[in-house]
Design a protein around this nucleic acid. Structure first.
Ligand SMILES: [Mn+2]
Ligand SMILES: [Mn+2]
Ligand SMILES: [Zn+2]
Ligand SMILES: [Zn+2]
Lengths: 146, 146
DNA sequence: ACAAAAATGCAAATCGTTTGCAAGTTAAGC
DNA sequence: GCTTAACTTGCAAACGATTTGCATTTTTGT
């Protein structure tokens, strides 16, 4: 989604391009990881924006396909801009919480199997991974014999 | 997880096998789909059990690996018994809400790619699918030429 | 600039889930 | 079977993320 297109995309869906929306969109496009509504709210610097407005706008942006909602088993959801129609998943370190993108998606390969097994037509999926990031890898030391 | 083993599994974790736990476990093992805390609560027939107790027990069972928590983008989480250490995913119909198990898991194949791309060691993942079930498939009619 | 449509701030409401505490139940050893 | 410590429960209150009603402000299309 090119920066210029957002206004048109919004207009097509009868949504206005407001100050809050522009700023939220900018924050999301600049972030290297998905952000929570509260994180976004705290990064809003210009004109004051209510947290409820952040929630309303995230939902609006999600509804028209500009933003993706992500569940990483936290108390809240995270949101990220969908750039160039990209499809990504995430992996979160179970030790330090670091989050990275995973561009591989092997689920398409699964769709046929699912179709045969259950008769469902696959439309969408969530795949979130959890593991241990390079910095948190347990150091391999020689066994100390108890 | 054989029915007899649950008591031992609980004991190993310093948990008691209470009336509520036994009944919740029974309900989960009988259900063909993951249930919400409220659904479980409503299915409890014997001695009265508080909803808070259902939540506490679901968490306890999850913590010791007897139960899996599932997020299907609803307002609540669902829970299912982990039988025989099985690893399953789910697919939910976007039209009627029907939920079925997906036994295929292609994520393992992805682990190597993730390891190479991000250096993360994969420990766990969530994969939930959304689509259209056989009953809800749009009927293919001949094009009417507008 | 103008009227209509959409969005916002603010405060209150929602709602799934959690928690403190006193009372009840279970586990384990005798 | 008792006895006690550990664990669990009911109940009501608290929590925290998210949503909503409504009066007011901003944005849009002409
Ligand atoms: Mn995918
Ligand atoms: Mn899997
Ligand atoms: Zn880490
Ligand atoms: Zn269906």
């Amino acid at each position: 989604m090119a920066a210029m297109d957002i206004a048109n995309h919004l207009r097509r869906h009868k949504k206005s391009l407001t100050r809050a929306r522009a700023e939220i969109w900018h924050i999301l496009t600049q972030s290297e990881k998905p952000l929570s509504p509260d994180e976004i709210h705290r990064r809003l610097t210009g004109h004051k924006v209510d947290l409820a407005t952040v929630y309303r706008n995230l939902r609006a942006l999600k509804d028209i396909g500009l933003v993706r909602e992500i569940d990483l088993r936290e108390a809240f959801k995270r949101y990220e801009a969908i750039l160039a129609g990209q499809h990504v998943h995430h992996i979160m370190c179970q030790v330090c919480g670091r989050i990275e993108k995973v561009r591989h998606c092997v689920v398409q390969d699964m769709a046929n199997a699912i179709q045969k097994e259950s008769g469902f037509t696959l439309k969408d999926h969530s795949l979130e991974c959890f593991g241990i990031c390079p910095s948190c890898q347990p150091h391999k030391t020689k066994a100390q014999g108890t």
